[in-house]
Write a protein that binds this DNA or RNA. Structure first.
Length: 581
DNA sequence: AAAAAAC
């Protein structure tokens, strides 16, 4: 572990023996597979951005060095989606992203596009601008935001949306989905409603829905970057902004609303919102938006968008069959674009599983992990709000510096503050629930720990997708107990699929039986009842922050209270804001 | 299969 850390800073020689010992120390954990993640520091291995075979199916066993100097796979037509049988009515083309050059940081991924008359993808933003005559201001804002080459989903998805087609886009975490829908939406809106050039009718014209406030906020920020220099009215919907829209004159000038579903439903029902002029609807994290709890709300919002020509698009890194069915039924003559492998984490993320026997062994394991070098900020996922609060508290009490916590039981302000500390790099260990699992783009996050086992493959993929963003490497560790055993095989297969390795016995486990699942359900439910009380932010953290706050006012050395750990890297600021989902 | 999140 330490060896890895030193290596990742480029400061030491890779020592296999030492590394092996460390792995054994961590029980069954396979921290890194065959040097993944340290490849660029060892001789003879391709740096990840050139390692296209990471994107082939079947894990490392199949990794062969048979690509040419340009790294192109000779088997690029090989099908890897089992549900890709050809369809009489659909046109299909596949290719690997050709726009990516060897110097590009983002790796190539296989892209498939299915549907009628699929528009040709573009190779660069310049191509895009030329073909669709994009506003120059929009283009310069894209450049200003640091986007250089379109990612797979951008080069394929943006033309589809610009040609006013409906789209279901499936692209891995951290591959720039947000820009893929914001750019065409803004281009198609043409001019702000408040400008004289606009003849687009009155009222909101675009709607973007996301499952959490934090994500809506982040999308809003991205949108504002693209909007610079023009008088776009882009509203992050909240109780406060909703009430300002009660004024019809204000409402008519709004171009884009970004919101969570329930907030929209409330506004619609209050009669203060008119959606009949909406021309573009985007569901981000579409599978989440279409699951049981959100579906009705989303359907109500979509039904309120009564304009005859509404373009709809859904985006996610994961889209289980049932969610896809619902999504496709909402879309009109859709094109389905898949980048990489559906429901599969990025190969850039080195994944491992760590056995921790039972719940009480998790904390010692984590503390031991934190006592060794790690790359802050570290994101730690737990299953419930009370567990988030109490784990954060335990960590603070154990002397771990800069521990933070984020769950939906906290106040809006507490949540905003936590995200802002994270963006500033002030949080070194962030304990959180599923609320942070999707879409959040903290560029500095190199490590994710699933302290509690994820409840679904989708959850796993999204949680660990908080690292390995925009072509960077990442590392994800998942703790599992005896109780998690029934679901181990499923996650092990996902890990294998994305190019990390797992012990052989895991894949040989029997399929989880329904009996076992039911038993687990009982245990978990009892657990939930015991801790059902509403929890706020950890008292220990509040106290710590008060102390830190008063120190900050006196001087800038607010860390003098916590034990110095000079082996800790300085956390990177995580708000560079180039690319997000 | 279940918790979290949404107001």
């Amino acid at each position: 572990m330490e060896a890895f850390h030193l290596l990742s800073r480029g400061g030491a020689q890779f020592d296999k023996k030492r590394f092996k010992n460390d792995v054994q120390l961590f029980n069954k954990s396979k921290t890194l597979d065959k040097g993944k993640g340290v490849a660029k520091h060892t001789d003879g291995e391709l740096p990840p951005e050139l390692d296209f075979f990471k994107f082939t199916q079947g894990g490392p066993g199949k990794r062969k060095v048979e690509c040419g100097a340009d790294g192109r796979s000779p088997h690029k037509k090989a099908k890897v989606d089992e549900d890709d049988e050809s369809d009489e009515n659909s046109e299909e083309h596949e290719d690997e992203d050709e726009e990516q050059t060897a110097s590009s940081s983002a790796p190539r991924q296989r892209v498939t596009a299915k549907g009628n008359n699929v528009p040709e993808h573009v190779k660069s933003f310049a191509d895009l601008a030329k073909r669709y005559n994009l506003p120059s201001r929009l283009l310069s804002n894209i450049a200003q935001s640091g986007y250089k080459q379109p990612t797979g989903i951008q080069s394929h998805g943006v033309p589809i949306l610009l040609e006013s087609r409906d789209l279901a886009a499936i692209s891995p975490t951290g591959t720039g989905k947000t820009l893929s829908y914001l750019l065409p939406t803004m281009a198609l809106l043409g001019a702000p409603a408040s400008s004289s050039q606009s003849d687009s009718g009155k009222g909101v014209r675009a709607l973007i829905l996301a499952p959490t406030r934090e994500l809506a906020h982040q999308i809003h920020n991205e949108c504002l970057k693209l909007a610079q220099g023009r008088k776009w009215r882009i509203v992050l919907f909240s109780r406060a902004t909703a009430s300002t829209l009660a004024d019809k004159n204000v409402r008519d000038k709004v171009d884009i609303i970004i919101s969570t579903p329930l907030r929209m439903v409330a506004a619609i029902q209050s009669g203060n919102l008119e959606l009949s002029n909406v021309r573009h609807i985007v569901l981000d994290e579409a599978d989440r938006m279409l699951d049981a709890e959100f579906l009705e709300q989303v359907q109500e919002v979509v039904a309120s968008c009564t304009h005859p020509k509404v373009q709809k698009a859904v985006f996610s890194a994961t889209l289980p069959a049932n969610a896809e069915k619902i999504a496709m039924s909402m879309l009109h003559d859709p094109i389905r674009v898949v980048v990489g492998l559906k429901d599969t984490p990025l190969p850039l993320i080195a994944q491992s599983l760590t056995y921790v026997a039972d719940d009480s062994s998790k904390l010692p394991t984590l503390l031991q992990y934190l006592s060794q070098p790690y790359n802050p900020p570290l994101l730690v996922f737990v299953s419930t709000q009370p567990r988030a609060t109490s784990l954060a508290e335990e960590l603070v009490l154990s002397g771990t510096p800069n521990v933070d916590c984020l769950h939906a039981g906290m106040t809006k302000k507490e949540r905003e503050d936590a995200v802002s500390r994270m963006r500033k790099g002030e949080s070194w260990v962030m304990v959180s629930t599923e609320v942070m699992a999707r879409g959040m783009d903290f560029k500095g996050v190199r490590e994710v720990i699933n302290y509690d086992f994820p409840q679904s493959v989708q959850s796993y993929v999204h949680r660990i997708g908080r690292t390995g963003r925009a072509g960077r490497e990442g590392k994800a560790i998942t703790y599992f107990t005896d109780e998690d055993a029934p679901f181990l095989k499923t996650i092990a297969n996902v890990i294998l699929q994305s190019g990390s390795t797992v012990p052989e016995w895991m894949v040989k486990l029997p399929k989880p039986s329904k009996m076992k699942r039911r038993e687990m359900g009982k245990v978990k439910r009892a657990d939930a009842v015991n801790s059902a009380r509403r929890v706020g932010r950890s008292e220990a953290i509040k106290k710590r922050d008060m102390i830190a706050g008063s120190k900050r006012r006196k001087g800038k050395d607010e860390l003098s209270e916590v034990p110095k750990r000079d082996y800790l890297e300085k956390p990177r600021a995580t708000d560079a804001g180039e690319m997000s989902e």
